[in-house]
Amino acid sequence: MTAAAVGLSHSPLIGKNDPEPEVLARVEAAVGTAKAFIRDFDPELVVLYAPDHYNGFFYKEMPPFCLATEAHAVGDFGTRSGPLSVDTAAAKSLAQGVLDRGVDLTISARMTVDHGFAQPLEVLFGGIDRVPVVPVFVNGVATPLGPVARIRALGTAIGEAAAELDKRVLFLASGGLSHDPPVPVLDGAPPRVADALIEGLPPTPEQRAKGELRVVQAGRDYVAGSTAMVPINPTWDNRLLDHLAHGELTEFDSWTVEAMAKEGGGSAHEVRTWIAAYASLAATGPYEMTSRFYEAIPAWIAGFAVTTARGR
């Protein structure tokens, strides 16, 4: 088995509220490096760790993480809707391997995913159905959230199980670093919002469009400085990337839920996808981070990063 990892931040504001052309050029260059890395590695399977933004997972049942044997995308924020090309046999094998290693894993035979999954597949592979994939949802927004050590344990177990597949496996993380976008919370929500967060009532096209416009406006307000959102934190973001680059994954075990939100914002827990992906790679042997890009991008309300890594 040969393994590699790519981390790619996503943002629903890409193409809708973009930064200056020189910033976009730097992002495109970093993404181009990642795409060339993937072409060279030529993965036979992609294990995609990504969050959800109340499009597929709701408080009626909210697992800390969940692996899909089948998945379809809702098509939010301009991403494509439809089925992902899930490698069901590989997904079932990984699921059993994780359970055999003592990690309690939720399984979905029909997972609904949103732009957190679709965007990296479209950006890096040209579509949501171009590469065999095993989608793994990692909760990064719905409290209460479990300890980060359990996410590292999940990634380790999946990496060990993937090593038994005898394939070229790419572990792909999708998530912003520090960011605090306007995501609804259950505590104190009005009854209509609370019901939607619990029951998962699908929005009408009009409701989805209004919600997306609110996010776009939030990005514009953030750039203008008229917002109460927690600021992007490059120091915290680069500390995370340093730990990943040096293989210091046990350092994350001491990171608390409260401190992560205070330093990185309410959605900073999307970095759990990065920790899981790098833990999976580390489980297959020593690795080297071969490229690293980071930039704070207020227009996208995110600390934005792109990394590549492969086994030594």
Rank of each mutant, 00 (worst) to 15 (best):
L8Q: 06
S11K: 04
A25N: 07
F41A: 15
G56H: 00
Y59S: 04
E61S: 08
F65M: 09
E70A: 15
E70P: 00
G75I: 12
F77H: 11
G78R: 01
G82L: 02
T88G: 11
K92C: 09
S93M: 12
L99T: 15
R101I: 07
D104L: 14
D104S: 13
I107D: 05
I107S: 05
S108H: 09
A109P: 07
M111L: 11
M111P: 06
Q119V: 10
F125K: 07
F125R: 10
G126R: 05
P135W: 00
A149H: 00
R150V: 06
R152S: 02
A163G: 13
E164M: 09
A173W: 00
G175I: 10
G175S: 10
H179T: 03
D180P: 03
D195T: 14
A196N: 07
P203E: 13
P205N: 01
Q207R: 11
Q207S: 13
R214A: 14
S226R: 15
S226F: 12
S226D: 15
M229W: 07
N233D: 13
W236D: 05
N238P: 07
R239E: 15
H243V: 13
L244W: 03
E251Q: 14
T256P: 00
A268K: 09
T273H: 05
A277Y: 02
P286S: 09
T308I: 11
T308Y: 06
